[in-house]
């Protein structure tokens, strides 16, 4: 059985550059979250977008609870896409949990990647001993409960809708799709896999340079976590952003673009 990886992960490729720049979404959304960022890189890069199996318009039939019960399974999605598109020297941009997914992928197959850009990453979300991750296990339980509750009334959250957006009419017609839709059972599993993961031991294995984009005032990846990553990732650059919250690529795309461009300019 040959699986069509590009269909499975709803892979989108565009742009006029030769070097690939791959954007990986985080927990809770899909490739649409990069829409404010990618236009700035289209001229210089070949943009690769995708949805993890279970998110967005991926093929839900390919979901496998054992595989995706570990971040390694998600890293395999990334590697299989690189292989299918025959990529090398990819600039990998990962939001949130995708920072660690990219890390695992780059440890396993370094030849695919040139550098990693992690937006709001965390190697471990739960406080453990002296380590401050920001959460206790019961917070994760609470999140799972909140998600369950929302799936009851989520029909309108998930179903296709026409966006009435007077502010950004340019987003127009193509937005008749649902965004950030995720299968409830899969989303629950993804939440568990994400928030209970601990990749602190893997950090020293990364041989590629990395940029950590750390938001100010981010509950999910607090400043201490960014500093911890910077201390343990050799050849890493830490940028503390003015953007607040956990989604600077959506709340402050200009700053996000500028910092990525500066970093890639320096690295080039």
């Amino acid at each position: 059985m040959v699986i069509d990886i590009l269909k499975r992960n709803n892979v989108t490729v565009f742009g006029r550059g030769s070097q690939a720049m791959m954007f990986a979404h985080g927990f809770g959304c899909d490739q649409n979250m990069w829409r404010y960022i990618t236009p700035a890189f289209e001229d210089d890069f070949r943009i690769v977008l995708f949805d993890y199996v279970g998110a967005g318009k991926s093929d839900l039939r390919s979901y496998n609870a054992e595989r995706y019960g570990s971040l390694q399974g998600y890293a395999q999605d990334v590697l299989e896409i690189c292989q299918s598109l025959d990529l090398a020297n990819v600039v990998f941009v990962g939001h949130s949990v995708s920072g660690m997914i990219g890390l695992l992928a780059a440890i396993e197959q370094p030849s695919y990647f040139s550098e990693l850009i992690m937006v709001g990453p965390s190697p471990c979300y739960i406080n453990k001993g002296d380590y401050v991750g920001g959460f206790e296990e019961q917070d994760v339980e609470g999140l799972l409960e909140t998600m369950e509750k929302n799936y009851i009334g989520w029909a309108n959250f998930l179903a296709p809708q026409i966006m009435k957006n007077e502010d950004r009419p340019e987003l127009g017609q193509e937005l008749t799709e649902s965004f950030c839709s995720t299968d409830p059972v899969i989303a629950r599993q993804f939440a568990k896999t994400t928030f209970l993961s601990d990749n602190r031991e893997d950090l020293q294995k990364l041989k590629k340079p990395s940029l950590i984009l750390q938001c100010s005032d981010d509950l999910i990846a607090p400043l201490e976590v960014g500093e911890f990553l910077h201390r343990h990732l050799a050849n890493s650059t830490l940028q503390v952003m003015n953007a607040k919250g956990h989604c600077p690529h959506m709340s402050n795309p200009e700053e996000t673009i500028l910092l990525i461009k500066n970093y890639l300019g320096v690295m080039a």
């Binding site: 809770g28 979250m33 959460f135 909140t146 998600m147 009334g153 937005l175 965004f179 950030c180 709340s251």
Partner: peptide, 29 residues
């Protein structure tokens, strides 16, 4: 917001509002 609601806000609610422009019947604490 309670901590779980804050996580939900950052991972689901905010991206949704940003992309969709609206959201209905969201359960939070």
């Amino acid at each position: 917001f309670t901590v779980p609601t804050r996580i939900f806000f950052q991972t689901h609610f905010f991206p949704m509002i940003k992309l969709h422009g609206h959201a209905e019947e969201i359960f939070v604490t």
